[in-house]
Amino acid sequence: MAGAIYTLIDHSQGKIQSASLESLVIGQRMAEDAGSSLHALILGHRIEFLAEQLTNSRIDSIVLLDDPKLEVYDPDLYCEALHQILNKKQPHILLMGHIYQNIDLAPQLAAVMNKGLLTDCIGYHKAEDGFTFTRRMFRNKLNADVQIRSPHPWIITIQSGSAIVDDLREGGAQIIEESVDLSTVEVRRKLLKSFEASKGKVDLSKAEKIIAVGRGIKKEENLDIIGDLAEVLDAEIAASRPVVDNEWMSRDRQIGSSGQTVTPNLYVACGISGAIQHIVGMKNSQCIVAINTDPNAPIFNIASYGIVGDLLEIIPALTKKLRKE
């Protein structure tokens, strides 16, 4: 039997993160393919109830690390806790979601342990000499299959949306409590305050039609053509993050991982390349139309219909035609 696979279960506000459950689904598949055991690893304080939520999943064990010092995430404390537990358990692979917290934590752990870290993976293959992992490169335009060349454990972060939480297989798992000694950790980073950005006035989650615009619009003045199209279609307007960063549209109209998640019947993506952080916010739209000058833009991989061309020409023509109807 090959070495064990561990999946880190992250949580916030008393809920397990879906990215962690997706990683667990991938862990289940890998464990089966490799004939290895699979374990969930959960860190925090007073979180036994979260561990219990996993007891009827097909996992060999749930390792619970409950320590008051782990109540709130801190990179130094979490890194040391993981370091100790990995040294003890000697797993083959540690999987975790590619979420903000792990972007902060995983490289520190990799550096402290001098282990290979492969981030933002979307899948894996089983090769003769072990697993290779698939990840996107060049702003989503290419895939690469990559293998880590260093002693185990390997640390792998998994992109959100790489598996479906409902695919988590059922079984039975025992909770194993472990402890770590964090008394010598010197915390260098001080958390001053956490806050939720004020929710904007615009709620696009129920919009039926959305015309979304990206950096391909080039200039703020050009936004008028988007507004005109939205008007004839009775649609809401929205934008990718760079458009909002430029203050050409208000923050509450941003779609994506740091904006809103929408599921309209029609989503027209104009001059949006299709970065993963945008796609997670709109990929479940019923019908996606992409207009982009670049035939290889990744947005075409998830759109229903695509037009390769200049939005400054196509949008006004489309508006004109629809007005006539």
């Binding site: 001098n114 282990k115 989503n140 293998q147 880590i148 260093s150």
Partner: peptide
């Protein structure tokens, strides 16, 4: 130092 080896590069298919 941990190394990474790219085995294959290809266009994504969906």
């Amino acid at each position: 130092v941990p190394q990474l080896e790219v085995r294959r590069v290809y266009f994504p298919t969906t």
